[in-house]
Design a protein around this nucleic acid. Structure first.
Length: 877
RNA sequence: GGGAUAUUAGCUCAGUUGGUUUAGAGCACUAGCUCGACAAGCUAGGGGUCACUGGUUCGAGUCCAGUAUGUCCCACCA
């Protein structure tokens, strides 16, 4: 037998096993007659790298999938990546600029796409390799990409289908514009947060008067595009200005003063400037009062000719510069510090600019109805349930979805324009046919059609993911088998961006939910509760952590702090704990490997211990499914942890451990290896590598842990389990006395029961108690022996003679404390029982329980009192 | 402004339809241990008025109302 290393060394183990599993094809799934258990991965960005959030949700998915395999299901976990159009395009643009000194405009669409594919081939998909490091048991043969051929075809088909159903339209509206990526964003892609800024008070002269009116704004540069002033109709300060006009400073434009109750008279000066082109509320007001719309910012948010001033400057530069101009013109009343909400692009972080433009939208009203119903009725089951509220709120107030993006990296919208008409079809040829038919003109050519330049929002492909990864529109066989998927594991932060939309797509195209259950993980935060992010630098390097501690340790760390739905505070200590746990199991293995077996029969202690361990293990196997079912994964892993560390290692192994230099009974030896292997199977979904490694040593490489089915849950003898609890308690009590008095474990002690019989005093428990307590004798006594300490366990009094180690004063103190507690307890029970209404109203079983408590409590008090009397009486003689 | 959710040991959290001891776990802490698997360890120990106030009930950590504090979501306040 090979010598095992002092410590468990994951570095030597993990890659070996992953390669083995993959080579054996254990993670590949094909439809068959078993029930399926399918999971689709939330596709990470193709250019992403593994971070804490991925590790958490992929560990959870892996546990579910591995557990499903153990249950005999045909588990299929589909991996893949998302083309992440904005994020990736931004990276490619930067790369082209930095490395090749090229811009999008210079190279054009086709060339850009070539570079983008080049770039994603080179840097993309790294994250999938990193998932293997974590142990993710994905079916890699099924790896999908939202921009690959099959998925793209599906996206186009979905678009065409929606268009034909009349659920798509184009409209000219105020949108969220990202001036850095130069594209529109959906509402969900804008993140609002409070930021420090300034409130500028600007004086506008009233036309034909020397009077001034002061407005307050956070965006002074946009006054160049002002086309109105608004005040509240009942604001007395401004009542006299009805019908007057104001002059915009610097540009000297005369604009109307309007009266609308949209204005809050309490805020600022109670007067508001109106810039219809650059603010969505102002746009609405402008429409209402038919104001002119002057656009003064281009797609990069630079000031245009229309403004007449500061032309070419960036909006922030212009803001800085306009201050001086306003001061010179004596139009700046004051500037005060102010905190307001600023919306930023989720991907580029640049401040979102409201902008008017023509975009494609999905009409969400009809799509939302069945999707809302599905979640509210738990047909799609949310964990934790509280997320249902959030979902409902959003679905009931749903806005149409802006799906066009002014980007190139993505699915180009299959809309073709000819003259004033729009033709939507899967390809140009079909569009051409439609156009010819519409115009009744066979002379129209492909070249006459102009395809939409915009691509689709990334989420327009992601929402099809649970369908498209099973090639849902080609051949229904896969889809029929795997759909609906079993569980989705994701963060609650993308409940609108992704989860809700998948539910809608599921009902729209499959008429059925996309998944049975959704498990929302929390956000990974650092110990101070801050969200982990690159910019804060508080996110540990995931791969480095795996290298250093092992994937199992990291998985343990992630899991043991992850309440469902709640945020989790990540602490390296937990990863250390995971590493220590692996090491503990490794050392238990080493102990087993050291033993030599003989033909001898097991000792009484060994036989009893083995029986107890098996029942204890059965009880654990029995508890686990319920926890798994409810996604109580951290509870499950803690139960396994405690079971292995305490029950198996600290108690069981110590019970059966042969004396130094002795051999162990073959029967005990084999049973122990078998049970330890069973435990490895239970733990395997959580910590796949270390369990596989230990399994291979226990079974001498004859099979793989990852292929094992869950053991059948055997008989659970609760009397046996209770008796052992009693025995453990007594052993601990004896050890406590040793600790307390400084008596070595080698010094044999006597444990005497006050009375004549005790079920643990005879039979197999006798030997076990003596061995575990380091006892020289186990006997009976009818009174307190000289120089002994006593304790009451249950309703029995026990004595342990300790000779000169006895300290009467300390002993009296201790017993008095026990007595106090026992009396207090008894009083509380008696109080309850003396309450007539309790006895009359509570169920009989509850009352009976209280009576038993009272009897035991009284007996206990009496025994402790007797022990105390004996001690004081005995020594005073 | 509206809503959600949380508040239990020093820390992170369980506590499953109100009733087995006057609340559990892990970590941390304290004391003692080189005992042939493990100091990444062993043995034992201390530690909580369950945020606060009131209510419902025979009985409340658990249900209800309010208060405080935290977190998050939504909303057009320049």
């Amino acid at each position: 037998m090979t010598e095992l290393s002092k410590h468990y060394e994951p570095q030597n183990v993990e890659d070996k096993w992953y390669a083995h599993w993959e080579k054996a094809g254990y993670f590949h799934s094909e439809p068959d007659d078993r029930p399926s258990y399918s999971v689709v991965i939330p596709p990470p960005n193709v250019t992403g790298v593994l971070h804490m959030g991925h590790m958490l949700n992929n560990t959870i998915q892996d546990i579910l999938v591995r557990r499903a395999r153990q249950e005999g299901k045909n588990a299929c976990w589909v991996p893949g990546t998302d083309h992440a159009s904005i994020a990736t395009e931004a990276k490619v643009v930067k790369w082209l600029r930095d490395e090749k000194a090229l811009t999008k405009g210079e190279i054009g669409r086709e060339k850009f796409m070539e570079y983008a594919y080049q770039w994603t081939d080179k840097y993309g998909g790294v994250i999938l390799q990193q998932l293997k490091k974590l142990g993710a048991s994905c079916d890699w043969d099924r790896t999908a990409f939202t921009l690959d051929e099959d998925r793209s075809a599906h996206v186009i088909q979905a678009f065409v289908d929606l268009y034909r159903k009349g659920k798509l339209y184009r409209d000219y509206r105020m949108v969220n514009w990202d001036p850095e990526a130069r594209t529109v964003l959906s509402n969900e892609e804008v993140i609002y947060s409070e930021e420090a800024s300034q409130l500028y008070h600007i004086r506008y002269q009233i036309s034909g008067s020397s009077e001034h009116l002061t407005i307050a704004t956070t965006r002074p540069e946009t006054i160049l595009a002002d086309t109105g002033i608004a005040v509240h109709p009942e604001d007395e300060r401004y009542a006299h200005l009805k019908g007057k006009r104001a002059i915009v400073p610097l540009v000297n434009r005369e604009v109307p003063i309007i009266f609308d109750d949209y204005v809050d008279p309490e805020f600022g000066t109670g007067a508001l400037k109106i810039t219809p082109a650059h603010d969505s509320n102002d746009y609405a007001l402008g429409k209402k009062y038919d104001l002119e719309v002057i656009s003064m910012l281009d797609e990069q948010a630079r000031v245009t000719e229309e403004a007449g001033l500061l032309v070419g400057q960036d909006r922030f530069e212009a803001r800085k510069n306009i201050r001086e101009l306003l001061e010179e013109a004596e139009a700046l009343a004051k500037v005060e510090d102010y905190v307001n909400k600023v919306g930023r692009s989720e991907r580029t972080q640049s401040v979102v600019e409201p902008r008017l433009s023509l975009q494609w939208y999905v009409d969400m009203q009809q799509l939302a109805a069945p999707a809302l119903e599905a979640v509210m009725s738990d047909e799609v089951d949310f964990y934790p349930k509280s997320q249902k509220n959030l979902y409902r709120h959003w679905m009931e107030n749903i806005k149409d979805w802006c799906i066009s993006r002014q980007l190139w990296w993505g699915h180009r919208i299959p809309a073709y324009y000819y003259k004033e008409e729009t033709f939507v079809a899967a390809n140009a040829e079909e569009a051409l046919a439609l156009a010819r038919e519409h115009f009744g003109d066979e002379q129209i050519d492909l070249e006459d059609l102009k395809q939409e330049e915009d691509v689709l929002d990334t989420w327009f492909s992601s929402w099809l993911w649970p369908i498209s990864v099973f090639n849902g529109f080609e051949d229904k066989k896969e889809l029929d088998y795997y759909y609906p998927t079993s569980a989705l594991v994701t963060g609650w932060d993308i409940i609108f961006l992704w989860v809700a939309r998948m539910v809608m797509a599921g009902y729209e195209w499959q008429g059925e939910r996309p998944f049975d259950k959704v498990y929302f993980t929390g956000m990974v935060r650092d110990k101070q509760g801050r969200k982990m992010s690159k910019s804060l630098g508080n996110s540990p390097d995931a791969l480095k952590m795996i290298d250093e501690y092992g994937a199992d340790a990291v998985r343990f760390g992630m899991l043991s702090c992850s309440p469902a739905g709640g945020d989790l505070l990540f602490d390296m200590k937990l990863v250390e704990q995971g590493r220590n746990f692996c090491n503990k199991m490794w050392n238990a293995l080493k102990l087993l490997q050291m033993w030599e077996a003989t033909e001898e029969k097991p000792s009484d202690t060994q036989a009893l211990a083995e029986q107890w361990m098996q029942h204890r293990l059965n009880a654990l196997s029995d508890r686990l499914p319920g926890m798994m079912e409810q996604f109580r994964l951290s509870e499950a892993i803690m139960q396994l942890y405690n079971f292995i560390w305490n029950d198996f290692c600290s108690w069981y192994l110590e019970m059966i451990k042969p004396e130094e230099g002795h051999q162990i009974s073959n029967q005990t030896y084999e049973a122990t290896r078998r049970m330890y292997a069973q435990i490895m199977v239970l733990l395997h979904p959580f910590l796949p590598f270390v369990t596989e490694e230990i399994w291979s040593h226990l079974t001498e490489g004859k099979s793989d842990c990852t292929q094992q089915r869950l053991p059948e849950v055997g008989e659970i003898d609760s009397h046996l389990l209770e008796d052992m609890e009693q025995a453990r308690l007594m052993v601990s009590k004896v050890r406590e006395i040793r600790n307390d008095k400084g008596i070595s474990g080698k010094e044999p002690l006597e444990l005497l029961l006050h009375g004549e019989s005790h079920r643990l005093w005879e039979g197999s428990f006798r030997a076990l108690l003596m061995r575990m307590g380091g006892l020289g004798a186990l006997g009976y006594a009818d009174k307190r022996p000289d120089q002994s300490v006593s304790f009451v366990s249950g309703t029995d009094t026990f004595y342990v003679p300790i000779g000169e180690f006895l300290d009467i004063g300390a002993e009296v103190e201790k017993l008095k404390k026990d007595l106090d507690y026992a009396q207090g307890f008894l009083r509380s029970v008696e109080k309850k029982l003396s309450n007539e209404r309790f006895v009359a109203n509570a169920p009989e079983a509850v009352v009976e329980k209280e009576r038993v408590k009272q009897r035991d409590g009284a007996e206990r008090v009496q025994k402790i009192q007797a022990a105390l009397d004996a001690l004081q009486g005995g020594e005073s003689k």
